[in-house]
Nucleic acid binder design. Structure first.
Length: 542
DNA sequence: ATCCATAGCGCC
DNA sequence: AGGGCGCTATGGAT
């Protein structure tokens, strides 16, 4: 499915290549869309972007490059030809087309494979999936990941509604009027002046961490870093000013006027998502910082007139996923009680909701000290299967082994440094530092694999959720406009919908969560409730 | 001029 | 506390 001279080469199922002029593509796609039809291409990022620009959407697709990466790393098909062959062009990730391409980008750029190669790769992938003990899981993973690439491309195309004037009002209220390029806004200028006076450091530039540290020391403030949490412990009149400065300077640099100029066009933020961009299977972004929109500026996310935002997040997704993947009936019961942290208290596992949250996060992230350490035994006792699941994942990582998510995404093997540090610690002349180092690396990797299984399975759940939402939104009546997914953030979605169908869209989002749970975990009685609001502005949600 | 590591902080 | 990230500014190195 490669863009060719003035059109596209397609391979219908009869196996005969056809060349379709770009102008006729929309009709050709519409003719071929239907149940069972699945478009196969190397990269949605490349090809589907062109389709959307031409006004063409497709129902189902198979993204060969995403699937290749997953299958090549998956233990379940480690013996397949796909996994054992030497690295080839399918192992090269596409560079995002952001800014001017550098020489390295040119070298790394990948030619579009020809049709024979597309089909050969598809065969290899089918064979790899078929060789797995539970092929259904990998097949679902590859399908879900492919839908994710469609959603990501569509979101980038449609964009998140962004009220530039509202954003500018926020910035002006907090920072003062927009300064000349490179200049500091008035509020920051004033704060810098105060700081210079309070610290007796004329000319101090608080943006320079070394200079700031020196100035703090000269003023008798003995901090080891300029981190917020360390500064908060200090009692000195300059600290409040400094913290205020840091907060506002951060807003200016990360989401200020130049960010607005760069990433928001025609009232839409176009996030450049990278599906599967994170080892665990989460999405990443390239530019725009769309996965880190600070709560401070969410008031700029505003529905068009006559439209609504359906803002939804999966409540306590990761604990629920853990309960399901480990088959832990007691924890599943907690999932059915509504708020899971309240349920832990109600079951008598811990005494307060904050403790429940600390303990649960500790279990999934591998915390070993402080309050978490004293709470964890309670969880182990109450939920032996769930805690056993993460403990086994951690132990496997500490051995230098690999772990897999529910659908079979496999964690990477530790790098060279792993063997080196372990060998150094085992050598006859090993120092205490070597031993300490090896032990620390071991624990670090165990925490990584422990979290990998939960975070990765949660990412799979989220893909299934997106897929269900996307499918059902497409079936809504279109006369007032098309309801679209416009934002995704790990366990949160925003749908932009005409007000006439907003409630239907909300139901779709809720039902999609339940469907995702069934798709992954069958009848296992874990529930996935969704916190949802139909609003005009993102800021109206908690 | 360009690359790279680090500090710091935003999100889940 | 502790897992996964992206992004910006800085400052040293090339």
């Amino acid at each position: 499915m490669a863009p060719a001279e003035g059109g596209y080469r397609l391979m219908p199922r009869d196996g005969h290549e056809v060349h379709i002029p770009a102008a006729e593509l929309a009709r050709a796609v519409a003719d071929r869309e239907g149940p069972g039809i699945r478009w196969v291409w190397a990269d949605a990022r490349r090809t589907y972007t062109a389709f959307l620009a031409a006004g063409i959407r497709v129902g189902r697709a198979h993204d060969l490059r995403l699937a290749h990466t997953i299958l090549r790393g998956a233990r379940a098909c480690a013996a397949s030809e796909l996994a054992t062959a030497p690295a080839n062009t399918w192992d090269t990730s596409l560079q995002a087309e952001v800014g001017e391409p550098t020489l390295l980008d040119e070298l790394a750029s990948v030619d579009e494979p020809d049709l024979a190669e597309l089909l050969a790769e598809l065969d290899r992938q089918d064979a790899a999936v078929g060789s797995a003990p539970q092929p259904g899981r990998l097949r679902l993973l590859v399908t879900a990941e492919s839908v994710g690439s469609l959603v990501a491309t569509e979101i980038r195309h449609v964009g998140l509604p962004w009220d530039v004037a509202e954003h500018d009002r926020q910035l002006t209220a907090l920072l003062g009027p927009r300064p000349l390029p490179g200049g500091r806004p008035a509020v920051l200028v004033d704060l810098v002046g105060q700081l210079q006076t309070l610290l007796r450091a004329p000319g101090l530039n608080p943006d320079s961490q070394p200079a700031l540290l020196t100035a703090l020391h000269s003023a008798g403030i003995e901090v080891k870093s300029t981190r917020q949490w360390e500064l908060e412990e200090v009692d000195h009149p300059a600290i409040a000013v400094l913290l205020q400065y840091k907060k506002l300077a951060r807003l200016l640099s990360a989401n200020g006027w130049s960010w607005l100029d760069t990433w928001v066009t025609d009232g839409r933020l176009h996030p450049d998502y990278v599906p599967g961009g994170v080892v665990t299977g989460r999405w990443a972004t390239q530019g725009s910082g769309a996965l880190q929109l600070p709560k401070q500026i969410r008031s700029a996310v505003v529905a068009d007139p006559g439209w609504r935002l359906v803002v939804a997040d999966a409540a306590q997704l990761e604990p629920r996923v853990l309960a399901a993947m480990s088959g832990d009936q007691a924890m599943a019961a907690a999932s059915r009680a509504g708020d899971m942290y309240d349920a832990l208290v109600a079951q008598g596992v811990v005494d307060t909701r904050p403790h429940a949250k600390i303990a649960m996060l500790a279990a999934m992230y591998g915390a070993t000290t402080g309050e978490a350490a004293t709470l964890l035994p309670r969880l182990v006792q109450a939920y032996p299967h769930a805690m056993g699941c993460v403990a086994r994942a951690a132990a496997e990582g500490e051995r230098g082994g690999q772990v897999t998510t529910w659908l079979g995404r496999t964690s990477p093997v530790p790098g060279e440094w792993w063997r080196r540090t372990q060998d150094a610690a085992a050598a006859p002349d090993a120092t205490e530092a070597d031993t300490r180092n090896a032990r620390r690396r071991t624990r670090d990797w165990g925490r990584f694999t422990r979290n990998f299984v939960v975070q990765g399975t949660a990412a799979e759940w989220a893909l299934c959720w997106l897929a269900a939402i996307r499918r059902d939104l497409a079936a809504l009546p279109q006369e007032h406009g098309r309801a679209d997914l416009v934002y995704f953030l790990h366990d949160e979605v925003i749908v932009h919908a005409p007000e006439q169908v907003a409630e239907q869209a909300a139901a779709i989002v809720r039902n999609g969560a339940a469907e995702a749970g069934r798709l992954l975990f069958g009848d296992f009685p874990v529930v996935f409730p969704v916190d949802l609001a139909v609003v005009r502005s993102y800021a109206e949600t908690g």
